[in-house]
């Protein structure tokens, strides 16, 4: 089952797609989000978000700064002030 993942910066919507898994560097430790994750909100420290598009593929790495992640029934949304 895919997970809906959105990466948003103040200037634009960077990414909005269905992915397999995303690993986010939370302030209190990295956490992976798969489909059906419980509602969860966390700040994100400066680091790299890893996005798996498929189960066996290689992760795509996206560096972010000043971030904030929210998991809801609609999927995962990461708000970051700077991307890349």
């Amino acid at each position: 089952m895919p997970l809906h993942f959105e990466l948003v910066t103040p200037a634009r919507l960077v990414l909005s797609e269905e992915v397999h898994q995303v690993v986010v560097p939370g302030t209190e430790g990295e956490f992976g989000v798969l489909e059906g994750h419980a509602p969860f909100t966390s700040t994100v420290k400066d680091g790299v978000i890893r996005v798996w598009r498929s189960e066996n593929g290689h992760p795509e790495e996206i560096p972010v700064k000043g971030g904030f992640a929210e998991v809801s029934a609609k999927g995962l949304t990461v708000l970051a002030e700077h991307v890349g």
């Binding site: 939370g26 302030t27 209190e28 419980a38 509602p39 969860f40 909100t41 966390s42 700040t43 809801s72």
Partner: peptide, 10 residues
């Protein structure tokens, strides 16, 4: 809110 309990960290 959709009624779900949201966890916060921190």
């Amino acid at each position: 809110s959709d009624g779900a309990v949201v966890q916060y960290e921190p």
